[in-house]
Design a protein around this nucleic acid. Structure first.
Lengths: 199, 199
DNA sequence: CATTAATGTGAATAGTGATTCACATGAGAA
DNA sequence: TTCTCATGTGAATCACTATTCACATTAATG
Protein backbone atom coordinates (compact mmCIF):
# COMPACT_ATOMS: atom_id res chain seq x y z
CA UNK A 1 0.00 0.00 0.00
CA UNK A 2 2.32 2.69 1.22
CA UNK A 3 5.40 1.00 -0.21
CA UNK A 4 4.05 -0.16 -3.54
CA UNK A 5 5.42 -3.30 -5.12
CA UNK A 6 8.69 -4.74 -4.00
CA UNK A 7 11.00 -7.48 -5.17
CA UNK A 8 10.19 -10.92 -3.85
CA UNK A 9 13.59 -11.14 -2.18
CA UNK A 10 12.97 -7.95 -0.27
CA UNK A 11 9.51 -9.16 0.70
CA UNK A 12 10.82 -12.54 1.80
CA UNK A 13 13.27 -10.83 4.05
CA UNK A 14 10.64 -8.46 5.40
CA UNK A 15 8.28 -11.34 6.03
CA UNK A 16 10.89 -13.40 7.84
CA UNK A 17 11.85 -10.46 9.99
CA UNK A 18 8.22 -9.63 10.78
CA UNK A 19 7.55 -13.25 11.65
CA UNK A 20 10.53 -13.45 13.97
CA UNK A 21 9.45 -10.30 15.72
CA UNK A 22 5.87 -11.55 16.02
CA UNK A 23 7.11 -14.78 17.55
CA UNK A 24 8.80 -12.65 20.16
CA UNK A 25 5.72 -10.64 20.94
CA UNK A 26 2.92 -13.15 20.44
CA UNK A 27 4.51 -16.57 20.51
CA UNK A 28 4.39 -19.21 17.83
CA UNK A 29 0.73 -19.81 18.43
CA UNK A 30 0.03 -16.20 17.67
CA UNK A 31 2.03 -16.28 14.47
CA UNK A 32 -0.66 -16.16 11.82
CA UNK A 33 -0.34 -15.30 8.17
CA UNK A 34 -2.84 -12.52 8.71
CA UNK A 35 -0.76 -10.92 11.42
CA UNK A 36 2.47 -11.19 9.48
CA UNK A 37 0.80 -9.64 6.46
CA UNK A 38 -0.55 -6.76 8.53
CA UNK A 39 2.88 -6.13 10.00
CA UNK A 40 4.52 -6.10 6.58
CA UNK A 41 1.76 -3.94 5.20
CA UNK A 42 0.31 -6.29 2.66
CA UNK A 43 -2.72 -8.52 2.44
CA UNK A 44 -2.60 -12.14 3.68
CA UNK A 45 -2.89 -13.69 0.26
CA UNK A 46 0.09 -11.68 -0.92
CA UNK A 47 2.32 -13.73 1.37
CA UNK A 48 1.79 -16.62 -1.02
CA UNK A 49 3.43 -14.68 -3.81
CA UNK A 50 6.68 -15.03 -1.89
CA UNK A 51 6.36 -18.35 -0.09
CA UNK A 52 4.70 -21.55 -1.20
CA UNK A 53 3.18 -21.98 2.24
CA UNK A 54 3.69 -21.23 5.90
CA UNK A 55 6.22 -24.04 6.32
CA UNK A 56 8.48 -22.60 3.70
CA UNK A 57 8.29 -19.27 5.45
CA UNK A 58 9.30 -20.79 8.76
CA UNK A 59 12.33 -22.27 7.04
CA UNK A 60 13.24 -18.79 5.91
CA UNK A 61 13.22 -17.66 9.53
CA UNK A 62 15.67 -20.40 10.38
CA UNK A 63 17.99 -19.27 7.64
CA UNK A 64 17.76 -15.76 8.95
CA UNK A 65 18.71 -16.86 12.45
CA UNK A 66 21.64 -18.91 11.25
CA UNK A 67 22.99 -15.96 9.36
CA UNK A 68 22.72 -13.66 12.35
CA UNK A 69 24.55 -16.13 14.59
CA UNK A 70 27.40 -16.72 12.21
CA UNK A 71 27.70 -13.01 11.49
CA UNK A 72 28.59 -12.52 15.13
CA UNK A 73 31.40 -15.03 14.87
CA UNK A 74 32.79 -13.22 11.86
CA UNK A 75 32.55 -9.86 13.54
CA UNK A 76 34.50 -10.83 16.64
CA UNK A 77 37.12 -12.62 14.61
CA UNK A 78 37.68 -9.44 12.66
CA UNK A 79 37.72 -7.24 15.72
CA UNK A 80 40.47 -9.04 17.58
CA UNK A 81 42.77 -12.00 17.33
CA UNK A 82 42.96 -12.66 21.05
CA UNK A 83 40.79 -15.76 21.77
CA UNK A 84 39.68 -14.67 25.22
CA UNK A 85 38.81 -11.27 23.84
CA UNK A 86 36.90 -12.89 21.02
CA UNK A 87 34.87 -14.89 23.49
CA UNK A 88 34.10 -11.88 25.64
CA UNK A 89 32.97 -9.88 22.67
CA UNK A 90 30.99 -12.79 21.29
CA UNK A 91 29.21 -13.01 24.61
CA UNK A 92 28.16 -9.39 24.37
CA UNK A 93 27.10 -9.65 20.77
CA UNK A 94 25.13 -12.73 21.65
CA UNK A 95 23.36 -10.89 24.44
CA UNK A 96 22.56 -8.14 21.99
CA UNK A 97 21.26 -10.59 19.40
CA UNK A 98 19.05 -12.38 21.91
CA UNK A 99 17.76 -9.11 23.31
CA UNK A 100 16.88 -7.80 19.92
CA UNK A 101 15.42 -11.06 18.82
CA UNK A 102 13.70 -12.92 21.58
CA UNK A 103 12.05 -15.11 19.01
CA UNK A 104 15.28 -17.04 18.54
CA UNK A 105 15.18 -18.72 21.93
CA UNK A 106 11.50 -19.46 21.57
CA UNK A 107 12.00 -21.18 18.27
CA UNK A 108 14.78 -23.30 19.61
CA UNK A 109 12.70 -24.41 22.54
CA UNK A 110 9.34 -24.86 20.96
CA UNK A 111 8.13 -28.18 19.79
CA UNK A 112 5.58 -26.32 17.69
CA UNK A 113 8.24 -25.15 15.31
CA UNK A 114 9.57 -28.57 14.52
CA UNK A 115 6.78 -30.95 15.39
CA UNK A 116 6.06 -33.24 12.50
CA UNK A 117 9.03 -31.84 10.59
CA UNK A 118 12.07 -33.93 11.52
CA UNK A 119 13.99 -32.26 8.72
CA UNK A 120 13.52 -28.84 10.23
CA UNK A 121 14.32 -30.13 13.67
CA UNK A 122 17.56 -31.46 12.26
CA UNK A 123 18.30 -28.06 10.80
CA UNK A 124 17.82 -26.35 14.14
CA UNK A 125 20.20 -28.86 15.65
CA UNK A 126 22.73 -28.24 12.89
CA UNK A 127 22.53 -24.50 13.35
CA UNK A 128 23.33 -24.77 17.02
CA UNK A 129 26.10 -27.31 16.47
CA UNK A 130 27.56 -25.17 13.75
CA UNK A 131 27.62 -22.16 16.03
CA UNK A 132 29.13 -24.19 18.83
CA UNK A 133 31.77 -25.56 16.48
CA UNK A 134 32.84 -22.05 15.70
CA UNK A 135 33.10 -21.27 19.39
CA UNK A 136 35.09 -24.47 19.75
CA UNK A 137 37.55 -23.21 17.18
CA UNK A 138 38.19 -20.07 19.15
CA UNK A 139 38.72 -22.09 22.28
CA UNK A 140 41.06 -24.54 20.61
CA UNK A 141 43.06 -21.64 19.28
CA UNK A 142 43.28 -20.26 22.81
CA UNK A 143 44.37 -23.62 24.12
CA UNK A 144 47.07 -23.91 21.48
CA UNK A 145 48.32 -20.45 22.29
CA UNK A 146 48.50 -21.47 25.93
CA UNK A 147 45.92 -18.93 26.99
CA UNK A 148 43.08 -21.29 27.85
CA UNK A 149 43.53 -24.29 30.11
CA UNK A 150 43.81 -27.58 28.30
CA UNK A 151 42.30 -29.93 30.85
CA UNK A 152 38.70 -29.26 29.74
CA UNK A 153 37.33 -30.22 26.36
CA UNK A 154 36.46 -27.35 24.03
CA UNK A 155 32.93 -28.69 23.60
CA UNK A 156 32.30 -28.53 27.32
CA UNK A 157 33.66 -25.01 27.48
CA UNK A 158 31.62 -23.75 24.57
CA UNK A 159 28.42 -25.12 26.06
CA UNK A 160 29.23 -23.57 29.42
CA UNK A 161 29.90 -20.39 27.54
CA UNK A 162 26.38 -20.40 26.16
CA UNK A 163 25.17 -21.21 29.65
CA UNK A 164 26.37 -17.85 30.88
CA UNK A 165 23.65 -16.10 28.95
CA UNK A 166 20.88 -18.62 28.53
CA UNK A 167 19.25 -18.57 31.98
CA UNK A 168 19.77 -14.83 32.26
CA UNK A 169 18.04 -14.39 28.94
CA UNK A 170 15.06 -16.33 30.24
CA UNK A 171 14.82 -14.11 33.28
CA UNK A 172 15.18 -11.06 31.15
CA UNK A 173 12.35 -11.92 28.86
CA UNK A 174 10.03 -13.22 31.53
CA UNK A 175 10.61 -10.15 33.66
CA UNK A 176 9.67 -7.94 30.72
CA UNK A 177 13.15 -6.56 30.46
CA UNK A 178 13.55 -5.74 34.13
CA UNK A 179 16.33 -8.24 34.71
CA UNK A 180 19.68 -6.90 33.57
CA UNK A 181 21.23 -9.53 31.28
CA UNK A 182 24.19 -7.43 30.30
CA UNK A 183 25.18 -6.89 33.90
CA UNK A 184 24.91 -10.58 34.65
CA UNK A 185 26.86 -11.45 31.53
CA UNK A 186 29.67 -9.14 32.62
CA UNK A 187 29.86 -10.52 36.13
CA UNK A 188 29.58 -14.11 35.02
CA UNK A 189 32.19 -13.59 32.35
CA UNK A 190 34.58 -12.28 34.93
CA UNK A 191 34.26 -15.47 36.93
CA UNK A 192 34.14 -17.76 33.94
CA UNK A 193 37.14 -16.33 32.13
CA UNK A 194 39.15 -16.37 35.32
CA UNK A 195 38.35 -20.05 35.51
CA UNK A 196 39.43 -20.59 31.90
CA UNK A 197 42.81 -18.92 32.07
CA UNK A 198 45.74 -21.26 32.02
CA UNK A 199 47.61 -21.16 35.29
CA UNK B 1 -16.42 -44.22 29.02
CA UNK B 2 -14.17 -46.98 30.23
CA UNK B 3 -13.65 -45.36 33.62
CA UNK B 4 -17.11 -44.07 34.35
CA UNK B 5 -17.57 -40.94 36.40
CA UNK B 6 -14.74 -39.62 38.53
CA UNK B 7 -14.34 -36.92 41.15
CA UNK B 8 -13.49 -33.51 39.79
CA UNK B 9 -10.21 -33.44 41.76
CA UNK B 10 -9.11 -36.67 40.15
CA UNK B 11 -10.09 -35.36 36.74
CA UNK B 12 -8.31 -32.05 37.29
CA UNK B 13 -5.15 -33.90 38.10
CA UNK B 14 -5.56 -36.24 35.13
CA UNK B 15 -6.18 -33.30 32.84
CA UNK B 16 -3.16 -31.31 34.06
CA UNK B 17 -0.93 -34.34 33.70
CA UNK B 18 -2.24 -35.12 30.23
CA UNK B 19 -1.75 -31.50 29.20
CA UNK B 20 1.84 -31.35 30.41
CA UNK B 21 2.64 -34.53 28.59
CA UNK B 22 0.97 -33.27 25.42
CA UNK B 23 3.01 -30.06 25.57
CA UNK B 24 6.12 -32.21 25.57
CA UNK B 25 5.02 -34.27 22.60
CA UNK B 26 3.08 -31.77 20.51
CA UNK B 27 4.06 -28.32 21.73
CA UNK B 28 1.80 -25.66 23.08
CA UNK B 29 0.27 -25.07 19.71
CA UNK B 30 -0.79 -28.68 19.58
CA UNK B 31 -2.36 -28.50 23.00
CA UNK B 32 -6.04 -28.50 22.19
CA UNK B 33 -8.96 -29.22 24.46
CA UNK B 34 -9.98 -31.97 22.08
CA UNK B 35 -6.61 -33.71 22.36
CA UNK B 36 -6.48 -33.42 26.11
CA UNK B 37 -9.98 -34.84 26.34
CA UNK B 38 -9.10 -37.74 24.09
CA UNK B 39 -6.02 -38.51 26.17
CA UNK B 40 -8.01 -38.47 29.38
CA UNK B 41 -10.76 -40.52 27.79
CA UNK B 42 -13.62 -38.05 27.96
CA UNK B 43 -15.36 -35.74 25.54
CA UNK B 44 -14.09 -32.16 25.00
CA UNK B 45 -17.02 -30.47 26.64
CA UNK B 46 -16.50 -32.56 29.76
CA UNK B 47 -13.26 -30.64 30.41
CA UNK B 48 -15.42 -27.67 31.30
CA UNK B 49 -16.94 -29.55 34.19
CA UNK B 50 -13.54 -29.39 35.86
CA UNK B 51 -12.05 -26.11 34.65
CA UNK B 52 -13.78 -22.85 33.91
CA UNK B 53 -11.73 -22.53 30.74
CA UNK B 54 -8.43 -23.38 29.15
CA UNK B 55 -6.62 -20.62 30.99
CA UNK B 56 -7.56 -22.02 34.35
CA UNK B 57 -6.28 -25.38 33.26
CA UNK B 58 -2.92 -23.93 32.23
CA UNK B 59 -2.62 -22.42 35.68
CA UNK B 60 -3.01 -25.87 37.14
CA UNK B 61 0.01 -27.00 35.11
CA UNK B 62 2.10 -24.16 36.52
CA UNK B 63 1.30 -25.21 40.03
CA UNK B 64 2.41 -28.72 39.21
CA UNK B 65 5.76 -27.51 37.89
CA UNK B 66 6.45 -25.31 40.88
CA UNK B 67 5.89 -28.23 43.18
CA UNK B 68 8.30 -30.45 41.28
CA UNK B 69 11.06 -27.83 41.35
CA UNK B 70 10.80 -27.13 45.05
CA UNK B 71 10.59 -30.82 45.81
CA UNK B 72 14.11 -31.17 44.43
CA UNK B 73 15.41 -28.50 46.78
CA UNK B 74 13.88 -30.31 49.73
CA UNK B 75 15.28 -33.63 48.65
CA UNK B 76 18.90 -32.48 48.38
CA UNK B 77 18.68 -30.59 51.65
CA UNK B 78 17.59 -33.77 53.33
CA UNK B 79 20.21 -35.90 51.65
CA UNK B 80 23.24 -33.92 52.73
CA UNK B 81 24.24 -30.82 54.67
CA UNK B 82 27.34 -30.07 52.62
CA UNK B 83 26.49 -27.07 50.35
CA UNK B 84 28.69 -28.14 47.44
CA UNK B 85 27.24 -31.60 47.66
CA UNK B 86 23.75 -30.18 47.71
CA UNK B 87 24.47 -28.23 44.56
CA UNK B 88 25.93 -31.22 42.77
CA UNK B 89 22.96 -33.36 43.66
CA UNK B 90 20.51 -30.59 42.77
CA UNK B 91 22.16 -30.40 39.38
CA UNK B 92 21.54 -34.07 38.79
CA UNK B 93 17.96 -33.96 40.03
CA UNK B 94 17.35 -31.00 37.82
CA UNK B 95 18.67 -32.87 34.81
CA UNK B 96 16.35 -35.72 35.69
CA UNK B 97 13.35 -33.43 36.07
CA UNK B 98 13.98 -31.71 32.76
CA UNK B 99 14.51 -35.00 31.03
CA UNK B 100 11.31 -36.47 32.34
CA UNK B 101 9.34 -33.35 31.66
CA UNK B 102 10.43 -31.54 28.57
CA UNK B 103 7.24 -29.52 28.77
CA UNK B 104 8.69 -27.45 31.58
CA UNK B 105 11.31 -25.68 29.50
CA UNK B 106 8.84 -25.13 26.71
CA UNK B 107 6.39 -23.45 29.02
CA UNK B 108 9.03 -21.20 30.46
CA UNK B 109 10.17 -20.08 27.05
CA UNK B 110 6.94 -19.80 25.21
CA UNK B 111 5.19 -16.55 24.85
CA UNK B 112 2.07 -18.50 24.01
CA UNK B 113 1.70 -19.60 27.57
CA UNK B 114 1.76 -16.13 29.04
CA UNK B 115 0.81 -13.81 26.24
CA UNK B 116 -2.02 -11.55 27.26
CA UNK B 117 -1.85 -12.87 30.80
CA UNK B 118 0.57 -10.68 32.73
CA UNK B 119 -0.55 -12.34 35.93
CA UNK B 120 0.53 -15.75 34.73
CA UNK B 121 3.75 -14.36 33.34
CA UNK B 122 4.40 -12.96 36.78
CA UNK B 123 3.77 -16.34 38.28
CA UNK B 124 6.28 -18.01 35.99
CA UNK B 125 8.79 -15.35 36.95
CA UNK B 126 8.06 -15.92 40.62
CA UNK B 127 8.49 -19.66 40.29
CA UNK B 128 11.93 -19.24 38.77
CA UNK B 129 12.98 -16.57 41.25
CA UNK B 130 11.74 -18.69 44.09
CA UNK B 131 13.79 -21.63 42.86
CA UNK B 132 16.85 -19.43 42.39
CA UNK B 133 16.40 -17.98 45.87
CA UNK B 134 16.58 -21.44 47.28
CA UNK B 135 19.78 -22.10 45.35
CA UNK B 136 21.06 -18.77 46.67
CA UNK B 137 20.46 -19.96 50.20
CA UNK B 138 22.61 -23.00 49.65
CA UNK B 139 25.36 -20.86 48.19
CA UNK B 140 25.23 -18.32 51.00
CA UNK B 141 25.49 -21.16 53.47
CA UNK B 142 28.55 -22.39 51.63
CA UNK B 143 30.08 -18.94 51.65
CA UNK B 144 29.48 -18.59 55.38
CA UNK B 145 31.07 -21.94 56.01
CA UNK B 146 34.07 -20.80 53.99
CA UNK B 147 33.56 -23.45 51.34
CA UNK B 148 32.48 -21.21 48.49
CA UNK B 149 34.39 -18.11 47.44
CA UNK B 150 32.89 -14.88 48.64
CA UNK B 151 33.96 -12.55 45.84
CA UNK B 152 31.00 -13.48 43.62
CA UNK B 153 27.41 -12.69 44.46
CA UNK B 154 25.18 -15.69 45.20
CA UNK B 155 22.69 -14.56 42.57
CA UNK B 156 25.36 -14.65 39.87
CA UNK B 157 26.49 -18.07 40.99
CA UNK B 158 22.99 -19.54 41.07
CA UNK B 159 22.26 -18.32 37.56
CA UNK B 160 25.55 -19.71 36.30
CA UNK B 161 24.59 -22.90 38.04
CA UNK B 162 21.42 -23.15 36.00
CA UNK B 163 23.51 -22.32 32.96
CA UNK B 164 25.38 -25.56 33.32
CA UNK B 165 22.31 -27.51 32.28
CA UNK B 166 20.22 -25.18 30.20
CA UNK B 167 22.08 -25.25 26.87
CA UNK B 168 22.78 -28.93 27.26
CA UNK B 169 19.10 -29.54 27.82
CA UNK B 170 18.31 -27.75 24.60
CA UNK B 171 20.76 -29.88 22.68
CA UNK B 172 19.39 -32.97 24.30
CA UNK B 173 15.83 -32.34 23.32
CA UNK B 174 16.59 -31.07 19.85
CA UNK B 175 18.80 -34.03 19.14
CA UNK B 176 15.98 -36.37 20.15
CA UNK B 177 17.89 -37.59 23.17
CA UNK B 178 21.16 -38.27 21.37
CA UNK B 179 23.11 -35.60 23.21
CA UNK B 180 24.24 -36.79 26.62
CA UNK B 181 23.12 -34.14 29.13
CA UNK B 182 24.21 -36.10 32.16
CA UNK B 183 27.73 -36.46 30.88
CA UNK B 184 27.98 -32.79 30.11
CA UNK B 185 26.53 -31.89 33.50
CA UNK B 186 29.18 -33.99 35.21
CA UNK B 187 32.06 -32.53 33.26
CA UNK B 188 30.81 -28.98 33.56
CA UNK B 189 30.19 -29.44 37.26
CA UNK B 190 33.77 -30.51 37.75
CA UNK B 191 35.03 -27.28 36.23
CA UNK B 192 32.38 -25.12 37.80
CA UNK B 193 32.75 -26.42 41.32
CA UNK B 194 36.53 -26.14 41.11
CA UNK B 195 36.01 -22.53 40.21
CA UNK B 196 33.68 -22.03 43.18
CA UNK B 197 35.88 -23.47 45.86
CA UNK B 198 37.42 -20.96 48.21
CA UNK B 199 41.13 -20.83 47.78
C1' DC C 1 3.36 3.69 -26.09
C1' DA C 2 1.89 -1.17 -25.50
C1' DT C 3 2.93 -5.56 -23.50
C1' DT C 4 4.00 -8.62 -20.06
C1' DA C 5 5.34 -10.70 -15.99
C1' DA C 6 5.51 -9.85 -11.17
C1' DT C 7 3.16 -8.37 -7.34
C1' DG C 8 -0.93 -6.95 -4.67
C1' DT C 9 -6.14 -7.38 -3.56
C1' DG C 10 -10.67 -9.01 -1.75
C1' DA C 11 -13.73 -12.59 -1.49
C1' DA C 12 -14.51 -17.40 -0.83
C1' DT C 13 -13.53 -22.12 1.16
C1' DA C 14 -12.62 -25.61 4.27
C1' DG C 15 -10.70 -26.88 8.50
C1' DT C 16 -10.01 -26.41 13.43
C1' DG C 17 -10.09 -24.07 17.65
C1' DA C 18 -12.69 -22.98 22.31
C1' DT C 19 -16.89 -22.68 24.37
C1' DT C 20 -21.99 -23.31 25.34
C1' DC C 21 -26.16 -25.73 25.95
C1' DA C 22 -29.88 -28.95 26.33
C1' DC C 23 -30.00 -33.43 27.52
C1' DA C 24 -28.43 -38.17 29.42
C1' DT C 25 -26.50 -41.01 32.97
C1' DG C 26 -25.09 -42.79 37.16
C1' DA C 27 -24.02 -43.00 42.23
C1' DG C 28 -25.30 -41.94 46.61
C1' DA C 29 -28.77 -39.75 49.97
C1' DA C 30 -33.40 -39.89 51.66
C1' DT D 1 -36.99 -47.21 45.41
C1' DT D 2 -36.86 -42.48 44.07
C1' DC D 3 -34.74 -38.08 43.98
C1' DT D 4 -30.94 -35.23 43.06
C1' DC D 5 -26.71 -33.46 41.86
C1' DA D 6 -22.30 -34.10 39.85
C1' DT D 7 -20.45 -35.67 35.79
C1' DG D 8 -20.52 -37.01 30.87
C1' DT D 9 -22.39 -36.45 25.91
C1' DG D 10 -23.26 -34.70 21.16
C1' DA D 11 -24.55 -31.05 18.51
C1' DA D 12 -24.26 -26.30 17.57
C1' DT D 13 -21.91 -21.72 17.49
C1' DC D 14 -18.56 -18.36 16.59
C1' DA D 15 -14.00 -16.90 15.77
C1' DC D 16 -9.97 -17.66 13.49
C1' DT D 17 -6.78 -20.28 10.56
C1' DA D 18 -4.26 -21.40 6.02
C1' DT D 19 -4.92 -21.44 1.43
C1' DT D 20 -6.89 -20.54 -3.34
C1' DC D 21 -8.62 -17.93 -7.10
C1' DA D 22 -10.13 -14.50 -10.27
C1' DC D 23 -9.03 -10.01 -10.84
C1' DA D 24 -6.36 -5.36 -10.41
C1' DT D 25 -2.26 -2.77 -10.49
C1' DT D 26 2.34 -1.68 -11.06
C1' DA D 27 7.25 -1.69 -12.98
C1' DA D 28 10.08 -2.62 -16.33
C1' DT D 29 10.92 -4.12 -21.04
C1' DG D 30 10.51 -4.13 -26.07
Amino acid sequence: MSTGKLDTEVRQSQIAQAALSLIASHGLKGLSIARIARKVGIVPSAIYRHFKNKEEMLDAILHHIQKRLLDNIDIVCNETLEPLDQLRRLLMYHVKLIRENQGILRIIFSEDFCHGHPKRKGRVYDIILNYLNNVDKIIIQGQQEGKIRRDIGPATISLMFLGIIQPAAILWHISDGKFDVTRHAEKAWKTFSECLIMK
